[in-house]
Amino acid sequence: MGNGLFLQNERQHQLYDRASQLADQIKPFAKESDKKGQLAEEIIQQLKNNHYLSMTLPEEYGGEHLSLYEWLVMQEKIAEGDGATALSVGWHLGIIMELRDEHKWTEENFEFLAREVSKQKLVNRASTERNTGSPTRGGRPETTAIWDGQGYILNGRKTFTTLASHLDYAIVSAYIEDDDQVGSFLVDMNNLGVSVDRTWDTLGMRGTGSDDLVLQDVRVKQERLVERKSGKRSGPKGWLLHIPACYLGIASAATREAVEFSKSFQPNSLDHTISKEHHIREKIGEMEMLLMRSRHLLYRVAEKWDQYPERRPELMSSLAVAKVSVTNDAQKIVDLAMRVSGGRGLSKDALFEKYYRDVRAGLHNPPMDDMVLEQFAKDLLDD
């Protein structure tokens, strides 16, 4: 196991083994997903066949009520098979974990969604818009919800809607004009007026298929207004650690690939493989050190989250540090892997260049580096 990943009991060992098998099952289809800019149907089917989409549900709904630590163990391993798959399904499972633990919805609405997810249905939030950017930056959504006496009529366009073409439900943020308030609606993707605009064409994480969600006069029942935004600052969200876990998994896969490459590649200028060269060994050693450091940080924070639920508000800074530190370490690890592979790493026939492109996306997932660093500076410098 190594590299700072501590499996503490038999259940965690079993979950790790299940994630390893799932990673092996999805890996053959990762290249197709990357090429098409959509998660391959075979990957979606494997996730469903393995009942992975319901893992964070409470047991009474057919889930396995994963702790944060357990879930990150699985997410990191799946990311070794394909980072885009891990990041995509991470949003779905994280939302379920958040709703499960924070009781943000009415019992009726949560039960409805839980029953659907137990059937391996997919859900994601649709909150980002072209003019407002990430919801973590603030900004009122331009998507509107207007009450017509019988229900709400939604109009708008959402960007970065991960797995848009595969979703069964979307939790859509909108400005409720009658109430002068922002709320979120649970929208069935089969509703009339819901469509997906295939806009996703990016450098990395192409397989997430994060296309635009378009809503044109979409009618939603009153009871599907599932959340209203309060003026209070939101608390810490441990489930967002699925983001650094994903990029750590990519870095781990890149390290393994670099080790295998260095042990097998022997240019005719040497009488041994490059694994005997000092500068290669130094790079491999640094990659291993960064992996170990990142895992210690990530899983220690997750462990605290699970063990001391009453102290979770105190972990806000630790969660932010874990995300920023681990994703930046992952960048360094994959860069070192590219240096080990040399020009061959740029080939589309190799895995290195895909790791290099995918890991870059971690800098643009919340919380962003600048926001975290500014908050720390504010705490220290502003009276």
Rank of each mutant, 00 (worst) to 15 (best):
L39Y: 10
A40Y: 03
A40G: 09
A40S: 14
E41D: 15
E41A: 14
E42I: 10
I43L: 05
I43F: 07
I43P: 01
Q45P: 01
Q45C: 08
Q45E: 11
L47E: 06
N49M: 05
N50G: 10
N50F: 06
L53A: 09
S54N: 11
M55Y: 14
M55P: 01
P58D: 15
E59V: 07
E59A: 11
E60G: 00
E60N: 09
Y61Q: 00
Y61F: 15
Y61W: 14
G62S: 01
G62H: 03
G62R: 00
E64T: 15
H65Q: 11
L66V: 10
S67D: 07
S67I: 06
L68C: 06
L68E: 03
Y69A: 08
Y69T: 05
Y69P: 00
E70K: 03
L72W: 00
L72A: 08
L72T: 02
V73P: 09
M74P: 02
Q75L: 09
Q75N: 15
K77W: 07
K77F: 03
I78G: 09
I78K: 01
I78V: 12
A79D: 05
A79F: 00
A79V: 04
A79T: 01
E80C: 09
E80P: 01
E80Q: 13
G81M: 01
G81T: 07
D82P: 09
G83D: 03
A84V: 06
A84R: 02
A86T: 04
A86I: 07
L87I: 14
L87G: 07
V89Y: 02
V89H: 00
V89A: 05
G90M: 09
G90S: 04
H92R: 00
H92C: 07
L93E: 05
G94T: 04
I95R: 12
I95A: 06
I96W: 00
M97S: 15
L99Y: 01
R100Y: 08
E102T: 11
H103M: 10
K104P: 06
W105D: 07
W105Q: 13
F110V: 05
F110C: 03
E111Y: 04
E111G: 14
E111P: 15
F112I: 03
F112Y: 13
F112A: 03
F112L: 09
F112H: 07
F112P: 05
A114I: 07
R115W: 06
R115F: 00
R115H: 09
R115G: 13
R115D: 06
R115E: 13
E116Q: 14
V117F: 05
S118Q: 09
S118Y: 02
S118T: 01
S118E: 02
K119R: 12
Q120P: 10
Q120I: 03
Q120E: 15
K121A: 11
L122D: 10
L122T: 11
V123S: 08
V123I: 15
N124H: 11
R125W: 14
S127T: 13
S127V: 13
T128E: 12
E129P: 04
R130I: 14
R130T: 13
N131C: 13
T132Q: 14
G133Y: 04
S134H: 15
P135H: 10
T136C: 03
T136R: 15
R137H: 14
G138M: 11
G138K: 04
G139M: 01
R140L: 12
R140P: 00
R140A: 12
P141A: 15
P141G: 01
P141M: 01
